Structures are given as C-alpha cells and as structure tokens.
Amino acid sequence: MLGALLSALVLWLASGLVAPVPTGWRAAGTVGFALLAVARDAGLLPRLRLPQNARQVPQDVLQRDLARGALQFGFEMGTGVRTYVSASLPYALALAVLLANDAGVALLAGLGFALGRAATPTLRFASGTGEEWDDRLIGRLPLLTTGAATAATAAWTVLALRAW
C-alpha cells in the first residue's frame, strides 16, 4: 500500500507540470493512450514496448529478516518500479493520474493499484493449489489484461466526455 501511494504522490506532484494544458486535451490524451494500451494488450501493437525495470525484487530480501524483508518486498512491488509489468493498464493509469492533476484521483489510483497488486498473491494463496492456480491464470491472462484495459478505457472515456 505504501509503495503504491508513494508512486501516486510522485505522479500527482509531477502533474503540476501539465496543469497549463487544457482539461479537454488532457482527457483526450488519457483516452488515446488507454486505447493504445488496449490495442497493445490485444496483440495489435506487439512491438510497442513500454519502459520497465524488468527484474524482480530479489529473494534474499526475504531471507535476511522475514518481517522487514516482507515490508521491503511489498513496498517495492507496490511502487510498480522494481518488478515486471506484463500489462499496459498500469502505464495508462499512471498517465491518467499525471494528466488528471487531482490529489483525490492520485489517492484512489494508488489504493486501487495496491489492491490490484495484492489480489494476485492473495488469491493464489487462498486457492490452496498454487501451481494449478498459476496454470489457470496463464491461460486467462490475455483476456484479463485486455478486459481490464478495455473497462478502464470505457470509464476514462465517460469521464473525459464529462470534462468537455
């Protein structure tokens, strides 16, 4: 939670730089990038590479001190900076927070990102069959990523239309 809120805070602080851009243009930019995210996740733009630090938090973080290691691991995963990001939606969300220039939007996005990041390990653990759960997830991942990006794009489109 703290890592995601820190990322949201940084994006919100940086959003002051786009404040002079008209609201309608910022809304259109959010929807436009979200549509690119949907197209990328649907496989229509496979060559569109998004920046990421493509490495995971090292396992030795947990081995040094379990409690502090778990907090550090969770913090780093929550920021979304030191991990693999397989879907385009987090990038679209980051841009939406940046272009929204609204502290409430940043807070809600940070909370939503944190809950989303926590959902996968929580559901995997609750299933009791981690390996089988992983196999089912891999089979459904394209539908999940494209569906989530499509739903977010629809929501952002409605909000953008309200802004005009």
Rank of each mutant, 00 (worst) to 15 (best):
D102F: 10
G24K: 09
T153G: 12
L95V: 04
I138V: 11
E132G: 15
V10L: 04
T146G: 09
R40A: 14
L2V: 03
V97Q: 04
Q52D: 15
E132K: 13
F73S: 04
L137P: 03
P22L: 11
L115A: 10
V158H: 11
T79S: 03
A92T: 05
R117N: 01
V31W: 03
R117H: 04
V105N: 01
P20T: 03
R47V: 05
V105T: 01
G16K: 09
L161T: 10
Q52A: 15
E76D: 10
S88F: 07
L62K: 08
A4C: 11
V21K: 10
L5N: 06
L95Q: 05
V158A: 13
S88M: 10
L50K: 13
R136F: 10
P142S: 13
T129H: 15
L143N: 11
Q63H: 14
G3Q: 04
A149P: 01
L6I: 00
A94N: 14
L6H: 01
Q72K: 12
M1C: 09
G80D: 02
G16P: 07
R64L: 06
P58W: 07
L115Y: 05
V10T: 03
W164S: 14
Q59A: 10
A54D: 11
M77W: 03
W156N: 12
A114Q: 01
P20H: 07
V85D: 09
A96Q: 03
L13N: 07
F75N: 03
A148P: 06
L99A: 04
G147S: 05
R82V: 05
A8C: 03
S88G: 15
V158C: 11
A34D: 01
L95G: 02
G128K: 14
A152D: 07
A151V: 12
S127R: 06
L93M: 15
A155M: 14
A37P: 05
G16H: 11
R26C: 00
L6S: 02
A42T: 05
A163R: 15
G112N: 06
A19V: 13
A19Q: 08
L123F: 12
N53G: 08
L144T: 11
L159E: 03
A87H: 07
L5P: 03
A106K: 00
L93I: 10
G116M: 01
A106C: 01
M1K: 12
A28E: 14
P51A: 05
E131H: 12
A54K: 10
A94H: 12
A109S: 08
